[in-house]
């Protein structure tokens, strides 16, 4: 019995030592996240590099520390609805409206837009190049049996894509030509390029990745393809643990003139055209919805 006791004590001692090591680590880092703001956002804002430019400015200005969690809009809103995020930067208007109607958010403000584009292999086997209506182009892709690569992750892009299928009355679920990656925009574009398929992408991510892709923009400019980003502050009444002041500060920052000016020129030097168009203060209707 003595033996077991000894072992047990050694175990306890070792475990305590381990906890001390971990504790030291926590103490060392405690200085930084005092006023952390959890920003749940879409992959497109991170993959384009926009947040890498904006967040350091915000942190310097306000002293908040931003924890950017880049997921799809669907997951971002799920995090907001559980009070696990303080502020959302998302692009899935219909789902956002439901989010607000359910009382999960306090204020929802328009930040910027760009647009979705239908991209595909330059050879364009379905022959949709230059078509004016996204719904018609989708019908033609379906009719030709060419493979369409979907995000399949409930992101803003995926939701938009479903809208277009539905608007065109196309049956897509379970069809042989309809494939899903379940990945972010960048990776889905890469898969699409590799397999020479069609896909729906936001222009920002497409432009940022264009050089390695070999996919062409085939359809653009249709009203249904508008891609609008909003910031939503998570409801502090529902989730008292959320950092509401921090979230609000970030939302204010996103719609401030300084930030909007940065958004206006972001990407011009690198890609020749802006990736996003600032819209703060405008009404959604003014964008032509």
């Amino acid at each position: 019995m003595k033996f077991k006791k000894n072992m047990f004590l050694t175990g306890i001692a070792l475990a305590t030592a381990a906890l001390l090591v971990a504790g030291g680590f926590t103490a060392a880092e405690a200085a930084k996240p005092q006023k952390a703001v959890i920003l749940a956002t879409t992959t497109s804002t991170q993959d384009t590099g926009l947040l890498d430019v904006l967040i350091p400015i915000f942190e310097k200005k306000t002293g908040y520390f931003v924890k950017t969690i880049a997921v799809g809009s669907g997951q971002a809103m799920a995090m907001g609805a559980k009070g696990e995020a303080d502020i959302l930067l998302v692009h899935s208007p219909a789902a956002e409206k439901k989010f607000m109607a359910d009382g999960n958010g306090v204020e929802r403000r328009l930040v910027m837009h760009n647009d979705f584009i239908i991209v595909g292999p330059p050879a364009d086997p379905a022959g949709i190049r230059g078509m004016k209506k996204a719904t018609e182009a989708f019908k033609k892709i379906a009719g030709s049996g060419s493979i369409f690569m979907s995000r399949g992750d409930r992101s803003g892009t995926h939701v938009k894509e479903i809208d277009i299928w539905k608007a065109g009355g196309v049956k897509y679920e379970g069809e042989k030509w309809y494939q899903q990656t379940g990945l972010g925009m960048g990776q889905t574009l890469a898969v699409s390029a590799e397999k020479k398929t069609y896909t729906l992408a936001d222009r920002g991510t497409y432009l940022a990745l264009k050089k390695n892709l070999g996919l062409d923009i085939l359809v653009e400019g249709d009203g249904i393809l508008l891609n609008i980003y909003h910031v939503i502050e998570v409801n502090p009444k529902k989730w008292p643990k959320a950092n509401f002041p921090g979230g609000k500060a970030f939302a204010d920052f996103m719609v401030s003139k300084e930030t909007q000016d940065i958004i206006k020129t972001f990407g011009v030097d690198k890609y020749g055209s802006p990736l996003f168009f600032p819209d703060a203060g405008k009404k959604e209707e003014a964008l032509g919805l």
């Binding site: 971990a22 009070g83 696990e84 643990k241 959320a242």
Partner: peptide, 16 residues
């Protein structure tokens, strides 16, 4: 998670 069983530790999205 903040609202999970160990949420009071506030260590999600940290090195810890």
């Amino acid at each position: 998670w903040r609202n999970g069983p160990f949420g009071f530790l506030e260590i999600l999205y940290t090195p810890s």
